[in-house]
Design a protein around this nucleic acid. Structure first.
Lengths: 170, 170
DNA sequence: ATTTTATGTCAGTCTTGTTGACTTTCCAAG
DNA sequence: CTTGGAAAGTCAACAAGACTGACATAAAAT
């Protein structure tokens, strides 16, 4: 109570009437859902001695083969020291290949190796399965709404990255 | 184009036709949106020298005043040792009060203090504001779908916790 | 030639997760 | 009643993964 939107009513037509209670439930839904969202990959990663950071790197390298370290840093929002540690182990383990850039030799272009792609498939399949089940349970209309709200929730810069990934088939 | 639920056609009535590409976009949307979701509280927490773990504890203690450590452990899904460290600092700093249980003296009942509630309000307001903006941008129908998909994405046990929190006014 | 950019590395810190060992309290079976 | 768990919580020590800061190298840009 004693808060911004509670009593403010909806004049016009689209202006939602949102109680703090509803907003809090939305916050809790995000929290619990995200746990489910990461649960399956987390189990797989643990078996191989990796963590979520490795998954994120693998995902986006797979999504944009040949991407540079700098671009990955931008997307993941971590420091290069942090990413480098993860990348180094993935390269040592033969899941990721780092090729020196052709046009700009300072850059490293990152690719998944054959076994990297296999691992990515394993992780992705688990996560996609949960996503598919949830989507089917909720229905087509709900899916559209889900995506709409998530996009609106992103910071502008992240939305830019998100849209850059759109329709860029792996 | 080729996005969400719109283009891909649905045979039958409920059985969604979902490409891997659509599912991957959903996964990425969750990733980027969650970053936005936590960004505002994270900034506030940092100023006070706390982390996300403190926020979670504060949130659920506020939501269920008098809750026990064990119940909190169940909801947060961490070890009691991990929660205890967080709880200890919050108690030392006078944001949380821990009262020995009446019926069972092994239990500790947790409450926010006055300043604890003030801090919770600060964190919550930031997060609710982002939520409200996203909800308004997406519209009422989208919000319903958003909630539907998130609930379907939770593990069964988390859904139980989520529903237990329903309509239990703070 | 000088500066800037892209990347990688070393060292050190912090948060938050883990396991293991321990205390206090409760309960129930002998 | 006592005794032996079981349950709740606390303390200690360690690991992953984030961060900052300093520094190195190579290549591009000026």
């Amino acid at each position: 109570m004693a808060e911004g939107s509670g009593g403010s009513g909806h004049r016009g037509e689209d202006l939602l009437f949102l109680t703090d209670e509803q907003l809090r439930k939305g916050i809790e839904a995000m929290f619990f859902a995200y746990r489910g969202f990461t649960a399956d990959p987390d189990r797989i990663l643990e078996k191989h001695g990796y963590g979520r950071a490795h998954h994120r790197a693998i995902h986006f390298i797979n999504r944009s083969p040949g991407t540079t370290v700098n671009n990955l840093l931008d997307i993941l929002g971590v420091t290069k020291q942090s990413l480098n540690r993860v990348l180094r182990t993935l390269i040592e383990d033969g899941l990721v290949e780092s090729r020196i850039g052709i046009r700009d030799k300072r850059e490293r272009n990152l690719y998944l190796t054959e076994s990297g792609r296999t691992f990515e498939e394993e992780l992705s399949r688990a996560q996609r399965t949960r996503m598919r089940v949830a989507y089917r349970a909720a229905g087509a209309e709900a899916v559209a709404g889900f995506r709409k709200v998530l996009e609106a929730m992103m910071d502008a810069e992240m939305r830019r990255h998100f849209n850059n990934l759109k329709d860029s088939a792996p």
